[in-house]
Computed example of a mutant assay.
Amino acid sequence: MKIVDIQVGRISVPLRTPFKTALRTVKSIEDIVVKVVTDTGHVGYGEAAPTAVITGDTTGAIIGAINESIKPQLIGLSINNFEDVMQRLHGSLLKNSSGKAAVDIALYDLFGQLHNAPLYKLLGGYKKEIITDITISVNEPEEMVKDSLDAVGRGYKTLKIKVGKDPLKDMERMKAIRKAIGYDIQLRIDANQGWKPKEAINILRKMEDAGLEIEFVEQPVLAHDFEGLKLVTDNVSIPVLADESVFSPRDALKILEMRAADLINIKLMKTGGIYNALKICSIAETYGVECMIGCMLESKISVTAAAHLAGAKSIITKIDLDGPALCSIDPVEGGANFEEYKIILPEASGLGFVRVPEEFFNND
């Protein structure tokens, strides 16, 4: 099974409602899709999310990285020699984690097809069904209450609330949401680097004192501020999840050595795909630290890959794979089955896609 071509295209999927965080507002998914073609006729699919405010990767940078640096390194290589292929991919250029992730995902899709097994079974086979939270965008408190009640009505038992824009308003938001939904629903908060360390400590302590019962806080401070992250972790009872601070296995190792966070968030767009995500899982297992698997604003293609990883590894105990649930349409046939909060992995080989529209690859 040799690689004979790598094709790049685009996918555009409107969201149900605008997605708002402390960093950005988005109305539709506008991602890069990849098709890796082999001499046996097998095809693997991947996806990259251009999230410049987090990864630094723009649409043009991703396309350029794939066509100019990654593709020349991989044409002619055999999927049978998978470790060699992975090393060539991840050594093809520095950074550009999203472009690497798209091709990495497509290659793992082919790896599963080569062995005629669902990818999650090849990687560990821990469980076939996983349960995700859903994100509530940052808005005025009354709108966030409405969105939270709607999510609960759709069956979600865990909500991830976006905060980080205004500490006083954040407190108002959280009190209003907790009062509206009661205490049977789990609440997580994500500040998206929106607070300074002492500011984070102050507001999180107030949330503790108010009895809001927050499961954890995600990335309360700037990504590069490992010391600030540790300061927050050391001074609040709410567990701290490192997200934007962790792009690589080396980042994860440093965070855990410093005890700068209680949990690690894995996102394929940050790690460059499944290959390095597996290394982070192993490091977390060594330290006995649980992981969450998350996603950017991505369609079913790359979120299916993340779901396979979650189904494979027991160290991934928290799931934040709501990208497809935020979309108003699903143009891809096959892959994981996203039934609101419930994600069921396919039994077909690889990632399990049946049909990815060819028109995605006719628009560049």
Score class of each variant (00 low, 15 high):
Glu298Pro: 09
Val221Met: 02
Ala306Ser: 15
Leu231Asp: 15
Gly272Thr: 07
Ser282Val: 01
Asn265Gly: 05
Phe226Leu: 14
Thr286Asn: 06
Ser245Met: 04
Leu222Gln: 15
Thr233Gln: 05
Gly228Met: 09
Glu298Phe: 13
Thr233Tyr: 11
Cys295Pro: 05
Ile238Met: 02
Ile280His: 02
Asn235Phe: 12
Met292Cys: 08
Lys230Leu: 09
Thr286Cys: 06
Leu256Cys: 03
Arg250Ser: 13
Val221Gln: 06
Lys267Asn: 12
Asp234Tyr: 14
Glu244Ser: 02
Lys254Ser: 06
Val246Ser: 02
Met258Ala: 03
Ser299Trp: 09
Phe226Asp: 06
Ala305His: 04
Val303Phe: 15
Gly273Val: 15
Cys295Val: 14
Leu256Ser: 02
Lys279Ile: 12
Pro239Arg: 00
Ser248Gln: 01
Pro220Cys: 05
Gly273Met: 11
Leu297Asp: 12
Val246Ile: 06
Leu268Tyr: 12
Lys267Tyr: 05
Ser245Gln: 07
Ile280Gln: 02
Lys270Asp: 11
Gly288Leu: 05
Glu285Gln: 07
Ala277Gly: 10
Ile283Glu: 09
Phe247Pro: 00
Arg259Gly: 03
Glu298Cys: 07
Glu227Val: 12
Thr304Gln: 08
Ala306Gly: 10
Glu227Trp: 09
His224Glu: 11
Lys270Asn: 08
Asn235Gly: 15
Val232Gln: 08
Glu244Val: 04
Phe226Arg: 10
Glu290Lys: 13
Ile264Leu: 00
Arg259Leu: 00
Lys279Pro: 12
Glu285Asp: 09
Thr304Gly: 08
Asp225Met: 13
Asp234Ser: 14
Ala261Val: 06
Ala260Asp: 10
Leu297Trp: 09
Pro220Trp: 05
Ala260Ile: 04
Gly294Gln: 11
Val240Gly: 07
Gly288Asp: 05
Val236Leu: 13
Gly294Glu: 12
Gly294Cys: 13
Val236Asn: 15
Phe226Pro: 10
Ala242Ser: 02
Ile293Thr: 14
Asp262Glu: 01
Leu231Ala: 14
Leu263Asn: 06
Ala242Leu: 01
Ile283Pro: 13
Ala252Asp: 01
Ile255Gln: 01
Cys291Arg: 01
Leu231His: 15
Thr304Ala: 07
Ile238His: 04
Lys267Trp: 08
Ala242Tyr: 00
Ile255Val: 14
Thr304Ser: 15
Thr286Leu: 07
Thr286Trp: 02
Ile293Trp: 14
Asn265Met: 05
Ile264Glu: 00
Glu227Met: 08
Lys230Ala: 15
Arg250Gly: 08
Thr271Gln: 07
Ile301Thr: 11
Lys267His: 09
Asp262Ala: 00
Asn276Arg: 10
Asn265Phe: 05
Lys254Leu: 05
Ala305Pro: 04
Met269Phe: 09
His224Trp: 10
Arg250Tyr: 14
Cys295Asp: 08
Leu229Tyr: 04
Thr233Phe: 09
Leu268Phe: 09
Thr271Trp: 03
Val246His: 02
Leu256Phe: 03
Lys267Ile: 04
Met258His: 03
Glu244Lys: 06
